[in-house]
Computed example of a mutant assay.
Amino acid sequence: MIRLESITKSFLVGKESIDILKNISLIIEEGEFVAIMGPSGSGKSTLMNIIGCLDKPTSGQYFLGGEDVSNYNDKELARVRNQSIGFVFQQFHLLPRLTAMKNVELPMIYAGISKSERQSRAEDALRKIGLEDRMDHLPNALSGGQKQRVAIARSIVNRPKLILADEPTGALDTKTSMAIMEQFRELNQEGVTVVVVTHEPEVAEYANRTILVRDGMIQVSAAAERGQRT
């Protein structure tokens, strides 16, 4: 599903080149549930941006579903994001003047899906995550957990094979965080590959494998029999 080969990412600060990612090689198989952890400034968010085709590596190759996307232009990367990847962020990124339903429909508009199909898929996605009674609510009428569920519904309507979640529980209380992680677990059990970037060990415990990033390098990639909470 995901294969990174000798990935580096550098940024120019003045005349100095700063290495953010250093020779990262990584494989994430289809259907895995993986957590990426690391301290602030470790490079984990930069790594997620490359995996999510939000940024391009300075060098190395990135294969997504067998497709070498390393040197794709912005238009090609946008196509890959729209067709293959669902995103969930800490701050939800919902448009405040659109209902939950309309927010979930947005990715399908960009994908050129018909209005009737958009409505049907959006309704199905909102029912799937337990918000069938909140479809017509604006974001300011939703709790933090409900907003994140809308974001999850939006991430799955184009039926991606990969969901990337960047600190998805960072703005939520503990009880709500656990409920959101259960949603990711259910999606993973249905065959969706899930990659979560987090600094919270309790969140990482839901994954089957944890990748630790420090100083721009993978420090540990530990497999564990997880996701067995009772």
Rank of each mutant, 00 (worst) to 15 (best):
K75D: 10
K75P: 00
E76M: 13
E76A: 13
E76K: 06
L77N: 13
A78F: 05
A78E: 04
R81N: 07
N82I: 03
N82Y: 04
Q83A: 14
S84L: 01
S84T: 01
S84E: 09
S84R: 15
F87E: 15
F87Y: 15
V88Q: 12
V88N: 12
F89E: 07
Q90G: 03
Q91Y: 14
Q91G: 09
Q91F: 15
Q91W: 10
F92M: 05
H93K: 02
H93N: 11
L94D: 00
P96H: 05
R97F: 05
R97A: 12
L98D: 13
T99D: 07
T99S: 14
T99Q: 10
M101H: 07
M101Q: 03
K102Y: 08
K102V: 06
K102E: 15
N103D: 09
V104C: 15
V104M: 11
E105N: 09
E105T: 02
E105D: 09
L106W: 04
P107L: 08
P107W: 11
P107A: 08
P107C: 09
M108H: 04
M108N: 10
I109V: 15
I109G: 09
Y110C: 00
Y110A: 03
Y110D: 01
A111P: 07
I113H: 09
I113Q: 13
K115P: 04
R118V: 15
Q119E: 13
Q119H: 13
S120R: 11
R121D: 06
E123F: 12
D124V: 11
D124F: 14
R127H: 12
R127G: 14
K128T: 08
I129V: 15
I129Y: 00
L131A: 00
E132F: 00
E132T: 00
R134Y: 11
R134C: 13
M135A: 07
M135N: 04
D136T: 03
H137Y: 08
P139S: 10
P139R: 10
P139A: 11
P139V: 12
N140K: 14
A141G: 12
L142K: 10
S143M: 12
G145A: 11
Q146F: 02
Q148D: 06
Q148A: 07
R149Y: 03
R149F: 07
R149E: 08
I152N: 01
I152L: 06
A153V: 12
R154A: 09
R154E: 05
S155Q: 09
V157L: 07
R159V: 13
R159E: 14
P160Q: 04
P160M: 06
L162I: 09
L162G: 02
E167Y: 02
E167H: 02
T169C: 03
T169K: 02
G170N: 04
G170I: 00
A171E: 13
A171R: 06
T174K: 06
T174M: 08
T176K: 01
T176L: 05
S177K: 05
M178V: 14
M178G: 03
M178N: 05
M181N: 02
E182M: 08
E182D: 09
Q183Y: 06
Q183R: 04
Q183H: 07
R185T: 11
E186I: 07
L187C: 06
L187P: 04
L187R: 04
N188Y: 10
Q189C: 10
Q189E: 14
E190H: 10
E190M: 12
G191V: 04
T193S: 11
T193N: 02
V195F: 07
V196K: 02
V197E: 11
T198F: 03
T198V: 03
H199T: 12
E200Q: 08
P201D: 03
P201F: 06
